[in-house]
Computed example of a mutant assay.
Amino acid sequence: MPQALRTTFQRLTAAPTAMGLASRMALSRIKQENIDPLPLLKRTNLTQAALHERKHISIASQINFLSEASRALNDEWLGLTLAKQLDLREIGMIYYVAASSHLFGDALRRIVRYGRVVSDALELRVDQQGATLHLGISYSGFSRHTDRHQAEFVALVLLRICRKLIGHRIVPVAVSFVHHRSGNAAQIRSLFDCDVQFDSQADALSFDMTWLDRPVVDGDPYLNELMVKLCEEAIASRASNVSPFRTLVENNIAQLLPHGEASASNVARHIGVSERTFARRLASEGISFGGLLDDLRRELAINYLRQDLQASQIAWLLGFRQNSSFTHACRRWTGKTPSELRHAQEFR
């Protein structure tokens, strides 16, 4: 294979990474509580050396490590806990390029443009709808349905940056997340100062458009010019990843499941291809839609059972019309009913 083609192939198939900031903070908390981190790190394919040396780590490993740390620390809202404690300067150049901008609107545009400096899986976008500005947060190259803590961490950090830039506690018009949450959400609502919607079609923060023309408190045109140059060099040197087709399909299925609309035709339409093309792409990768749907339901079911959701609620979230259908599927997947699996020693 020619070198240029090999380089392109490696770029397109490389696993997405992040700077590992949330994982480092979680590791620090685990040690403070005198919990042995080695089993957690081993299960998630991470090492203390990689985190201490501030290397970029696999997004999948970070998501799994935060989930493991959440259970070990008995902190259901670990992502929020870490985001509250973060010194924003630790984010590095993306913070400084925003903080040195002239206007809040300029800062927001630079955060959107240079988000991939933090993670090559992070995709930010800004859309205007009437008097409301929507900051969309999406991810590529991994299955979004596996994540809760990292998504909440990123959203709260972005809001904290916005508040820091203009020296005012901006209150979002709305906040939404793709993933599911149940129980008392008072903590997250108090941090965002607004109602927070889960099981949504997109991760997003929405603001009043009038904030865009507010000056940044510590704007510095000379520093900003330097930081823009450094950020441009950084994104030019980092190869951008293309989301694998399987991941794209999984992310769309996960959004449609609770609505009972996770059919091949609906997923194809959401992706923007014909059913014929959709089936051909799946077949070319050795994937069947039914198998993919079943695997995803199994993974989500185990995740939801660990969150102590009721079986009836899980059945609805997975798109099963009856609780008995979920119980039958769970027994087929694991050899146990939902209740038996929840209480199994190896499940804990």
Rank of each mutant, 00 (worst) to 15 (best):
L5H: 00
T7S: 14
T8L: 14
T8N: 08
L12Q: 10
T13Q: 09
A15L: 14
P16H: 03
P16I: 00
A18G: 15
G20H: 00
A22F: 01
R24K: 07
A26C: 07
L27F: 08
R29D: 13
R29G: 03
I30G: 02
K31T: 06
Q32L: 12
P37H: 06
P37C: 03
L38P: 00
L40R: 00
L41S: 07
L41P: 00
R43E: 15
N45T: 08
Q48H: 03
Q48P: 01
A50T: 10
A50I: 01
A50P: 00
L51E: 11
H52N: 11
H52R: 11
H52P: 00
E53P: 00
E53F: 06
R54G: 10
K55T: 12
H56A: 12
I57S: 10
S58E: 09
A60Q: 15
A60N: 14
Q62Y: 04
N64S: 15
E68G: 02
A69W: 01
A69F: 04
L73F: 04
D75V: 05
D75M: 01
E76S: 12
L78V: 04
L78H: 02
L78R: 08
G79E: 07
L80H: 05
L80E: 08
L80M: 10
T81W: 03
A83G: 12
K84G: 02
Q85Y: 00
L86S: 02
L86C: 08
D87K: 02
L88C: 05
E90Y: 04
M93I: 14
M93V: 15
Y95W: 08
S101T: 05
S101D: 10
D106F: 02
R109T: 10
R110D: 13
I111W: 10
R113F: 06
Y114E: 09
G115N: 10
D120E: 05
D120N: 15
A121C: 15
L122Q: 05
E123N: 14
E123T: 14
G130S: 07
A131E: 15
T132Y: 11
L133T: 13
H134V: 15
H134F: 14
L135Q: 11
G136N: 12
G136M: 10
Y139R: 02
S140Q: 12
G141I: 01
F142V: 07
S143L: 04
S143Y: 04
R144T: 12
H145N: 13
T146I: 10
T146F: 12
D147R: 01
R148F: 14
